[in-house]
Simulated scan of single mutants.
Amino acid sequence: MSTHYETLPTADAYSESFAVAPPEALGERHLWPRKPGFFIVHAATAAAIAQPVAKAAADVAIDVPTDAPPQESTEVPAINTDRVLVSAQWGLVPHWVKSASDAKLRATKLVNAKSDTASTGTAFRDAWLNGQRCIVPMNAFYEDDLRSGKAVPTRVARVDGKPMGVAGLWARWQGADGEVIISYCLLNVNANNHALLHRYGQPGSEKSMPAILNEGAYDAWLTARPEKAKEFMRQYAAQWLLANPVEKKADKIPKGLLG
């Protein structure tokens, strides 16, 4: 499971690839657990995150009296499905965490959720069942190649160089003193039989990869019912991905010049 990814390199990339207004500041290019990043949700959901007492339009039940006069409209208000970029911490903080210190400890271990257990695992279950789904924009993610016995960081990106939208879950935590932490995690799928990603990670362990969404499925992922959400948890085709070892500064120094 990846614990390092790249955010988008330019502001234009957010609007061009995800149809969202770019952030005021791009933030850190390389993201690690507990660092501030971004996720994407619909505007109605973003409003509910900011003001939890006000439910999103999709969650509001409309009661229509059976004896309502014919001239009264019974249409359900339109849901604002414009996409919004939300600033948040990478590393989920479940709503039931008791303190900010406990939140910090848990967040580093909750940056990834296995898609096959997200609906039952204690940390992610509520976010999954409550439909707290998001899209995490990224330019690339990193995995360790351990086949040589030495960890070689490897950058995985799309062949065409375009950003990836990874399926994720978000959460809102509020402490007794009013402190609020908005957080998210990436959803992962099994990659044991993936033509590319099966090479990475600890030998003998289950291989996994981020659940990369097809561009045309973004809105469907955000609005799908919980029982349908797992249909989006699929491997991204190996031929659409490119993996390159990351060159370290020491690798560029001629051996004769070393110590």
Rank of each mutant, 00 (worst) to 15 (best):
Y5R: 07
S17A: 13
F18Y: 13
E28Q: 13
K35H: 14
F38M: 01
F39W: 11
F39K: 08
A46N: 08
A50L: 13
Q51H: 12
Q51C: 09
V53D: 07
K55Y: 08
A56D: 04
A58L: 04
I62Q: 14
V64F: 03
E72A: 09
S73F: 03
A78D: 14
A78M: 14
N80H: 05
N80K: 02
R83C: 04
V86A: 10
S87E: 10
Q89W: 01
G91Q: 09
G91E: 02
A100C: 08
A103E: 07
T108K: 14
K109Y: 03
Q132K: 11
I135T: 01
A140Y: 14
D145C: 03
D145T: 10
D145P: 12
R147P: 00
V152T: 07
G161N: 03
M164I: 15
A167E: 04
G168H: 03
W170C: 09
A171Y: 02
R172Y: 08
R172A: 00
R172H: 09
W173G: 10
Q174A: 13
Q174I: 07
D177T: 07
I181L: 04
C185G: 01
L186K: 02
L186A: 06
L187K: 05
N188K: 07
N193P: 01
N193T: 06
G204A: 10
E206P: 05
K207S: 02
K207I: 07
A211G: 00
G216E: 04
A224T: 04
E231C: 01
A237C: 12
A237I: 12
A237Y: 11
P245Q: 01
E247Q: 10
A250S: 15
K252T: 06
K252F: 09
P254H: 09
P254E: 10
L258H: 07
